[in-house]
Lab assay of single mutants.
Amino acid sequence: GLMCLEHEDEKVNMYCVTDDQLICALCKLVGRHRDHQVAALSE
């Protein structure tokens, strides 16, 4: 899978609806997407 741009060791596994961007779990937990609307990726 694709790796996160901000956290190079994390794979992107969710999608930020607010930013129209693929993000990883760390982005959602501690990153700038924590208050955004996110959706899980169905692979």
Rank of each mutant, 00 (worst) to 15 (best):
K11T: 05
A25I: 04
K11Q: 13
D19G: 01
D9E: 03
A39E: 10
A39Y: 03
E8Y: 05
N13E: 08
A40K: 13
V38R: 05
A25L: 04
E8N: 07
L2H: 13
Q21N: 13
G31V: 03
E6M: 04
L22W: 11
E6C: 02
G1P: 07
T18I: 15
L22N: 15
T18N: 09
K28N: 09
Q37G: 07
V30K: 14
A39H: 09
R32E: 13
A25Q: 12
H33K: 03
K28M: 07
D19E: 10
H36W: 00
G31A: 05
V17E: 13
C24F: 15
D9Q: 13
V30W: 04
D19L: 00
E10P: 02
N13G: 09
C16K: 04
E43S: 11
V17C: 14
L41D: 13
L29V: 10
D9P: 08
D35R: 04
E43F: 04
V30F: 03
D9W: 09
C24K: 00
L26V: 11
A39M: 08
Q37I: 02
D19R: 01
V12T: 07
K11I: 15
Q21P: 02
M14Q: 14
K11Y: 06
K11D: 05
E6A: 08
V30I: 07
D20V: 04
R32T: 12
A40E: 10
E6T: 10
H7T: 02
M3A: 09
K11M: 12
N13L: 05
I23E: 05
C24S: 00
V17T: 09
H7A: 01
L2E: 15
E43T: 05
G1R: 08
D9M: 14
D35A: 04
V38G: 07
L2A: 15
R32P: 09
V30T: 14
Q37M: 04
A40H: 07
E6Q: 09
M3V: 07
A39K: 11
M3H: 13
D35K: 08
A39G: 12
C4S: 04
V17M: 10
A25E: 10
L29F: 04
Q37A: 10
E8K: 14
L26R: 14
Q21A: 10
D19W: 00
H33E: 01
H36I: 02
Q37C: 04
A39Q: 11
E8C: 13
D35S: 06
Q21W: 01
L2M: 15
E10R: 09
D19S: 03
H33N: 03
R32N: 15
Y15Q: 15
A25R: 12
T18W: 02
Y15A: 11
G31Q: 03
E6G: 03
R32V: 06
Y15I: 00
D19V: 00
Q37D: 13
G1W: 01
A40Q: 12
Y15R: 14
E8I: 07
H36Q: 04
D9Y: 07
L5Q: 06
L5D: 11
L22M: 10
V30S: 13
E10I: 00
D9I: 11
M3T: 06
L5V: 06
V12L: 05
C24H: 00
L2T: 15
E6R: 04
L41M: 12
C4D: 03
M3N: 10
D19I: 11
R34Y: 02
R32L: 09
E10Y: 05
E8Q: 11
L22G: 15
V38Q: 07
E10L: 05
D20L: 03
G1S: 06
C16E: 06
L5C: 11
K11E: 11
H33Y: 01
E8F: 07
C16I: 07
I23F: 03
C27H: 02
D20M: 08
E8P: 14
L26T: 14
T18R: 08
H7C: 02
L29T: 14
T18L: 04
R34F: 02
K28E: 10
L22T: 14
M3K: 10
H7Y: 01
E10Q: 06
L41E: 14
L2Q: 12
C24L: 00
L41G: 11
H7W: 00
A25T: 06
L41I: 08
D20P: 01
M14W: 09
I23M: 10
S42E: 13
T18H: 05
L26M: 11
H7K: 01
Q21H: 14
L22H: 15
Q37E: 10
V38W: 10
L29E: 14
